[in-house]
């Protein structure tokens, strides 16, 4: 019942360590040299280009650029939240036994996945062509006043994302063993409770990695919102380059910020995935920090080469 531990006493005198000459990997050295050579050539080509690299560090922390970064960040987060919530609803609708809801969900995914995001963004921005007046009963206004660049960007990006998220969520729900639903039903839990308490938490393990991927994609897709006059990073970079004429330089500035954002969120994704792996494996893999600390400790008490486990 309890874990058995190998209690064979370790020999007091360690056997003589093998000191063999390792296999030489000449191929690795050749490949490494080739990679460095190519990188150097590319570097030389770029440094000889007519690009004024000097302005890049200055513009990196420029107020206009920073406001663009902030806009990119929050529109991505909000659109993703909208996509996630709507995606879960659509996935549940799609899998429901009610033929009306499942058809509606199927049609939604078919349409929003089948048309370009850019078109959807522009459609929302120009929705006043279809509905000149927004009338919610308690609220009435000109659609032009309501449909700000922010709202058009949020709806365009978020509703499109929902179509992709619903497929991810559906795959996650379907990955959960049927026995889980049965056990939950046998305990007297209703469909809704079963979904919330038993199925979705387990589906998260399958849902989270592609969702992180979707979010990182969203950070960059949000640049399309420049088409609806939303002040995100690319729009801001272009605003500057239209006066300073540093067009390529500003794209470099924007790209550096995109790289920073995606790196930060890739790290966050690692920790979220780790959290939802609870219970699915006996021992969670160590975080990079824990690994670093362990290696440092090993290094400190280094006496003989570590034997591979």
């Amino acid at each position: 019942m309890t874990d058995t531990v190998d209690k064979t006493p370790a020999p007091t005198v360690p056997p003589e360590q093998i000191k063999a000459i390792p296999v030489r990997h000449y191929g690795r050295w050749v490949a490494g040299a080739a990679v460095i050579a190519i990188l150097v050539l590319i570097g030389i080509a770029f440094s000889n280009a007519k690009i004024n690299y000097g302005v890049i560090p200055d513009y990196l922390t420029d107020g206009t650029i920073l406001s663009g970064v902030w806009h990119t960040l929050y529109i991505s987060v909000l659109a993703m939240v909208l996509g996630l919530v709507l995606g879960v609803i659509l996935a549940v609708m799609r899998m429901s036994s009610n033929p009306v809801t499942s058809t509606v969900a199927w049609f939604y995914v078919w349409f929003f996945r089948g048309t370009p995001v850019l078109v959807q963004l522009l459609l929302w921005y120009n929705i006043s062509l279809v509905f000149p007046i927004l009338n919610l009963g308690f609220y009435k206004d000109e659609m032009n006043q309501v449909m700000t660049p922010f709202l058009a960007a949020l709806l365009g990006l978020g509703l499109n994302e929902a179509a992709y998220m619903s497929e991810i969520v559906r795959a996650g729900i379907q990955s959960v063993d049927e026995g889980q639903t049965e056990a939950s039903h046998a305990l007297g839990m209703t469909q809704g409770k079963t979904l919330r308490r038993v199925v979705l938490p387990q589906a998260m393990r399958v849902i989270v990695p592609p969702t992180g991927n979707e979010f990182i994609n969203m950070l960059k897709t949000s640049s399309l919102a420049y088409a609806v006059q939303f002040n995100e990073l690319i729009k801001r970079a272009q605003d500057i380059s239209s006066t300073s004429l540093a067009v390529v330089e500003m794209f470099f500035v924007a790209s550096i910020w995109y790289l920073i954002l995606t790196t930060v969120f890739s790290i966050a994704q690692y920790y979220i995935e780790r959290r939802y792996a609870r219970g699915s494996s006996r021992n969670l893999p160590p975080t990079p920090l824990q690994r670093l600390r362990k290696n440092l400790r090993l290094f400190g008490s280094f006496r003989r080469p570590e034997v591979a486990r």
Binding site: D177, G179, Q180, E182, A183, S184, H185, A186, L187, G188, M189, T190, Q191, V198, P201, Q202, R278, G279, S280
Partner: peptide, 25 residues
Amino acid sequence: KESEVAAQRRNIGMVFQRFNLFPHM
């Protein structure tokens, strides 16, 4: 109704061949 079936099941315990414990708890 679904809720009535659920209410009936509360009085009946079931143990499965494959345990079906909730792995995240």
